[in-house]
């Protein structure tokens, strides 16, 4: 994680490309992944992330010592993604997207509108969440990581671990409850 990484706002403000590149390396992928959770398209997510960094570079003159650069990046991306999603849901209605994709986009749009974006860039929060994942009961942790980080379907997980689909869901539910509690404590 990035907790040891310090962003040199002053150098970025002065147009130092190296300092800018460091931020890029630290956050680009996280921004991409964040956007993809909602727009469900890697290419679009990459574009949104690129846009956020272009914007950051454009407004560098206005940065000051108190500027929270990760907060800016995530917020810009969130706003652009929201815009994109609003257009997308309208367009999906009239084009050859499946009904299912259209419904899912609507759900994503609601989730993104209500997202508390700070849970994504606050280092203490990120640290707490990753620690909480680490501290999950063994089986629960295993299932959660397979689903969340390895992208396996519940069916695949059930087969692999020789447990029922219901049990998989229970583990996921348990994991999310514990993480949710952790977020509440750190807010």
């Amino acid at each position: 994680m990035e907790e040891t990484f310090r962003i040199d706002v002053d150098r970025i403000r002065k147009g130092d490309e190296n300092a800018f590149e460091k931020v890029f390396h630290a956050y680009f992928e996280r921004i991409c992944c964040f956007a993809r959770e909602y727009v469900c398209d890697w290419e679009v997510a990459r574009e949104l992330a690129q846009e956020a960094f272009i914007r950051l570079w454009e407004i560098r003159d206005n940065l000051d010592d108190g500027s929270d650069i990760p907060a800016l990046l995530f917020t810009i991306t969130r706003n652009n993604a929201l815009n994109y999603m609003k257009h997308l849901t309208v367009r999906q209605k009239y084009s050859d997207y499946t009904k299912q994709q259209h419904l899912e986009s609507q759900l994503n749009l609601i989730a993104l509108s209500d997202l508390q974006v700070d849970i994504l860039f606050r280092n203490d929060m990120q640290k707490a969440i990753h620690q909480a994942v680490d501290e999950l009961p063994d089986r629960c942790k295993e299932v959660f990581i397979m689903s969340r980080h390895l992208g396996m379907s519940y069916k695949e997980i059930a087969q692999k671990l020789k447990i029922s689909g219901k049990t998989v869901e229970n583990h996921i539910s348990e994991a999310l409850k514990r993480l949710r509690l952790k977020i509440k404590q750190n807010m």
Partner: peptide
């Protein structure tokens, strides 16, 4: 309830797929 759960899900992302070359 829905957005809270989704927020937790999102916050637990672990992106470490991109190589240095890709970056």
């Amino acid at each position: 309830t829905f957005t809270d759960i989704k927020n937790v899900w999102i916050s637990a992302a672990k992106p470490e797929q991109m190589t240095q070359a890709e970056l």
